[in-house]
Design a protein around this nucleic acid. Structure first.
Lengths: 196, 196
DNA sequence: TTACAAAACTAACACTTATTAGTTTTTATT
DNA sequence: AATAAAAACTAATAAGTGTTAGTTTTGTAA
């Protein structure tokens, strides 16, 4: 009937993935049907297969795009050779920005990764473990440099990741707290609760 | 073939609900099939319907059991007329204990509630909103009494709930951090980062 | 041992799912 | 205007879903 509308410089595949992110976030991967996705794009379900290979490919695209962005930003932060505190702050701010600007994709990567098929599931979990380990190492380094307090670095990383993930709550209370204020408060609190 | 085995003082329905909690947690509500649930109980799927009404009834039972426990504990804490700080501490500790002792059920209530059917979905969300509001009010009271710092109470509650929910991460790192140490560290950190 | 109820079973249904095949329409290029 | 490629469509399929009906087995009490 109609056609899939794309913003300029984005392929139709990208348009589909973007819609899938919102749908998967709202209903969960399994409850979201291809018919539903197609309808939200103004198209019949089989038409999608002119642009994509399968439903699970959509989930893979979302999860690995997010994982890659976090991984590459962490890499940038590591090789920037700033101090430990500035590095951690940059990472926190990046997490917050991702959570605000790419909420749907990050949410899906956080909640629906378990529906990835092998070998993608193992791959994803490995990337995640690696990411967490690097974060722990970064905090440990800061501790030996006496930039950070001597708190169990696993607990610190757990608190950092929990706090930014907690922005999911905030997304349901947007009106209550201003965005910029939230970001500053959160960074300040997380850091000054941690820095010597 | 065989029979559903129950611990003493628990009905077969309760045994099914307990198994369903683990299954729903691991695979998600939609991906978990009744045949799978039945198999894990050593029984054929239709046999389950001698004890339960429907699949969604299982989800309801899990979600509302958890919601009720949190609600009633909050009520107990409120009428105990301890100081604001002691009250908040009791609530945090209860959250942590629930997360440790009833991980599966709490996880399902946190992640799979969106698959509840109406009117249960609205009911659940209302209970949740009420809970959060009471928590905010409690923090506000502490602020006016100058027991707590003057931080945006929504942000404080957000951080509290995020932190305890973050124990999901810890469940995958159990070996790295001792349980008791974790609880004490977390309470101390959350409170002394908040108390005057 | 007989009788009754609880709880298992098999078979089947109605429905939804992702996906494929084959065809027609649309779009772009010569 | 003719042609080729892209992308839509309709129809259909195989697999999986929760659930019901009807039947048989199991456990319990008289």
């Amino acid at each position: 009937m109609s056609k899939i509308v794309t913003a300029k410089n984005t392929s139709k595949k990208d348009a589909i993935i973007l819609r899938a992110s919102g749908l998967f976030k709202n209903k969960g991967y399994n409850a979201a049907s291809m018919r539903e996705l197609a309808e939200s794009l103004g198209v019949e379900a089989p038409s999608l297969y002119n642009h994509i290979g399968s439903k699970s490919e959509l989930l893979q695209a979302i999860c690995f795009k997010v994982a890659e962005e976090f991984t590459s930003q962490l890499h940038q932060a590591e090789i920037s050779h700033k101090g430990s505190q500035a590095t951690v702050e940059a990472i926190i701010r990046f997490h917050i920005r991702m959570m605000v600007e790419h909420y749907d994709e990050v949410f899906v990567a956080n909640h629906e990764w378990k529906h990835l098929k092998e070998p993608y599931l193992s791959d994803f979990l490995n990337q995640r473990r690696t990411y967490e380990k690097k974060l722990v190492a970064l905090v440990e380094k800061g501790i030996t440099e006496r930039v950070f307090r001597n708190i169990n670095p696993y607990v610190v990383v757990l608190n950092l990741l929990s706090a930014v993930r907690g922005l999911e709550f905030w997304h349901r209370h947007k009106n209550k707290v201003d965005t910029q204020e939230l970001e500053e408060d959160m960074v300040t609190h997380l850091l000054t609760g941690m820095v010597n």
